[in-house]
């Protein structure tokens, strides 16, 4: 298993609060890696470290063997993209204009808008199904459309590695599946390496090719969903008694939480 992107013995902390110690993580090339774990387990912190937003106090994030904090930001941005948890659409901006901002790392003072830029932006909008919205103001779009526009911007960056921080939060179930299907297609058809933080275990098990399960800032298990998602591990990581059955649609593991044991009503009163 080769990994262009790895976190090596990292200590990750905000101010004085340490989230992870000695955390080592490998992202297999061409994988769709999904990080799972309970709230505050450090999965978003891990993604921030991998995407250069948080500098490890100890250890390093290595991209192609070199520390990402020792290389020019613009060079990294041609290899490693990120869809942040929240971004602000500037006032009055149109979809095509926003997507075109993804070309920044490839542009310069005298190379402001090449034919390649134009073609890549058009491709990215087509791939995410927002080409019809090109001239619409981003502010007028629905949540699902907006998330696809942000994804198009990240695609226009043309990075072989793309990190997604909770890309489905705030979306209804249909739009969640739409975004995840899109990610799966990018992974399969374009051979991009994706790393996503997801909350929904069943979605993670269905879409990921590689899972990283975390608890208390540490990696508890890694591997394909079939080996990672077991009743014992879910109980250990989330503290949730459950059964794991085969997803009737895809055959991937499906977590079914155990029924609540009800006390007789008379006893409760």
């Amino acid at each position: 298993m080769r990994s262009r992107l790895r976190g090596d013995a990292m200590t990750l902390a905000y101010e004085r609060r340490t989230i992870s110690r000695e955390l080592t993580v490998d992202v297999p090339d061409q994988s769709f890696t999904v990080v799972i774990g309970p709230n505050a387990c450090g999965k978003s912190t891990l993604l921030r470290a991998l995407s250069r937003l948080l500098r490890p106090n100890v250890g390093a994030v290595l991209l192609d063997g070199a520390d990402i904090h020792r290389r020019p930001a613009r060079d990294i941005a041609k290899t490693l993209g990120l869809l942040p948890q929240s971004s602000i659409a500037p006032d009055g901006i149109a979809v095509a204009e926003l997507v075109s901002r993804g070309r920044y790392p490839h542009q310069g003072l005298l190379r402001q808008w090449s034919r390649e830029d134009e073609a890549v932006v058009a491709e990215s909008m087509a791939a995410t199904g927002v080409a019809d919205l090109a001239d619409r103001p981003v502010a007028e779009l629905s949540g699902g459309q907006r998330q696809r526009v942000w994804l198009a911007m990240a695609l226009a960056q043309q990075t072989p590695l793309l990190l997604l921080d909770e890309p489905t939060t705030y979306l209804d179930i249909a739009h969640q599946i739409e975004i995840l299907d899109l990610c799966a297609r990018l992974h399969e058809e374009e051979g991009r390496t994706l790393v996503a933080v997801l909350h929904d275990l069943n979605q993670a098990a269905r879409y990921a090719t590689h899972l990283i399960a975390m608890r208390d800032g540490q990696v508890v298990a890694t591997g394909p969903p079939q080996t990672v998602v077991t009743a014992a591990l879910v109980e250990e990581v989330f503290g949730l008694p459950c059964r794991v059955i085969d997803d009737p649609e895809t055959g991937t593991p499906l977590v079914v939480p155990a029924a609540r044991r009800r006390a007789p009503i008379g006893v409760m009163a």
């Binding site: 937003l53 930001a73 613009r74 990120l82 929240s86 500037p90 920044y104 790392p105 990240a154 960056q157």
Partner: peptide
């Protein structure tokens, strides 16, 4: 304008 995270991710 799009937030520090987005700008950082684009290499600023």
């Amino acid at each position: 304008e799009m937030g520090d995270d987005s700008a950082n991710a684009l290499g600023v």
